[in-house]
């Protein structure tokens, strides 16, 4: 059966519903929440702060350290088993590499910026959601960065090129599937994450990446809106000490 319509009724170049918030973790230096469809990511940034053990310190520039973690109860349990494993370690590493091009680490030699990404609920596209949350959290923490990073997965399901695959599409059995998580930096017009599961032709890949650029640019817009929304507060004297930092 050909793939003519997406299972949740989206257009082929449409992402799932996005919700973004900033400043959700009070004690962190910066934090963010990013939800795309049923995938939920929280990111907390601590630092720049002391880095130990000392041999990890870099005297020429700071270190960016990311940690990706699926919470034990996340996911459907069908494919990925949550927890600290080789997969989580790899994703932590690619997240670091996806964010490094935008952050300016020269300002704090010997120090570290820690990014913790936690996923309470996953439905495919979790590394992309994690990167989106992390980039907002870094901006919220006041880290100098050239741009925000938008991330989304693209790919093909059967003969259709689609944006933002959910789990039902990733595990589609009626034809070949390719899942390509990407992270994109709009101002530099560069991809900082590009991985793939499956097969795709050269032409299809080019087309998919063009769609990824558009989707990521839209995601970055959402991120900006969320960052600004944090400062839209009520200044009347009533209701005194609410939250906020």
């Amino acid at each position: 059966m050909p793939y003519t319509k997406r299972q949740d009724g989206r257009a082929f170049d449409e992402t799932r519903e996005i919700e973004a918030k900033v400043g959700v973790i009070k004690r962190a230096d910066g934090s963010a929440y990013f939800r795309i469809g049923k995938t939920v990511a929280y990111a907390a940034v601590y630092g720049p702060r002391d880095l130990y053990p000392k041999f990890l310190q870099n005297p020429t520039e700071g270190v960016l350290r990311c940690n990706y973690n699926m919470m034990p109860f996340s996911g459907s349990g069908e494919r990925v088993r949550p927890g600290a494993n080789r997969r989580a370690k790899e994703i932590s590493l690619v997240t670091e590499k996806a964010l490094t091009p935008v952050v300016d680490l020269k300002q704090f030699p010997n120090a570290v910026v820690d990014v913790f990404i936690e996923l309470p609920q996953t439905d495919a596209g979790s590394r992309c959601a994690g990167i989106c949350a992390a980039s907002m959290a870094l901006a919220d923490a006041g880290i100098t960065m050239k741009d925000l990073v938008g991330a989304v997965s693209v790919g093909r399901v059967d003969d259709k090129i689609v944006v933002d695959l959910d789990y039902s599409e990733e595990s589609y059995e009626g034809g070949p599937v390719a899942d390509i998580p990407t992270a994109y930096i709009p101002t530099m017009d560069k991809f900082s994450l590009l991985q793939m599961d499956g097969r795709i032709s050269k032409e299809q890949l080019t087309e998919a990446l063009e769609m990824a650029k558009k989707a990521c640019t839209r995601i970055v817009e959402e991120q900006r809106k969320a960052l600004k929304a944090k400062f839209d507060i009520d200044v009347s004297n009533e209701g005194g000490d609410s939250d906020g930092q």
Binding site: L148, P186, V220, Q223, R224, K228
Partner: peptide
């Protein structure tokens, strides 16, 4: 492009 005293975000 933006008004003075407005909130700006990295990359804007």
């Amino acid at each position: 492009k933006l008004e003075n005293k407005s909130i700006v975000v990295p990359g804007e």
